[in-house]
Amino acid sequence: MKPGPFEYHAPHTVADVTALLAEHGDECKPLAGGQSLVPMLALRLTGFPHLVDLNRVDGLSGVERSNGTLVIGAITRQRVLERDPQIAEAVPLLARAAPLIGHFQIRNRGTVGGSLAHADPASELPAVALALGATFDVAGPNGTRSIAAADFFTGTWSTALEPDEIVTAVSFPVRGERTGSAIHEMARRHGDFAIAGAVANMSLDAAGRVSAAAISLFGVASTPVRATGAEAALVGAAPADINTLEIGRLALADQEPTDDIHATGPQRARIAAHVTGIVVARALEEAGR
């Protein structure tokens, strides 16, 4: 099907974007890579009288490293995550997550900010942002603010953004010493949204014990979720004593995934527990190297 009619705006500044969003209220939507919004328009699942294209806005694209953080402009294409050697060095988890997003043709156009703002519960980047404690830079008609990843995702396809706000950039902490990270998922075919997946970021202290553990799950709830119980069980442990199967079970202990056409809830939970074990093992292995 084809999208219904709308008025198209292509402003050049963030101020003009937020002014348009404020003027038209819920009749208006930002358009980034279009890899989620255009299909929804074409299927007539949604429709807006006004679209504001972010692609011609100055200053929304690019990658910059400063003082232990890597700042990625919202309109930076997902493909950049897997190509830019600076990203692979500073936040390797981003380079590992990107190839799992759709297909390369999707990533050539889809943006980092778009994936985060779209907030699909089975998406990779929101889970990565949550595990790493990313910060979102947000601009609205009354100025800018920042939102922690932990407060950003509020439900399926919904976020803490006001309708007249956009994400302008996302900051990720640069990988620390003795830290390892991994992402893994199970999907029916490569490029499909995951049935379930997990992300781990683990640090070891000088004595080789776990000093920090972050695990986030995707595809198991309406937002990506941290597995706090499993994280607590890991901190202080020596890698040789860690039973990753047990950690996987613990991670899912307080989750009740729901059924859909791809998998039942219990299947989803078993898959998530299994991939959690895998990412914890891989992250620990890398941290100890």
């Binding site: 279009g34 255009v38 074409a42 294209d53």
Partner: peptide, 11 residues
């Protein structure tokens, strides 16, 4: 390489 059905002509 991109999907031309997901890019608007005006874009």
């Amino acid at each position: 390489a991109v999907r031309s059905c997901l890019v608007l002509a005006v874009q």
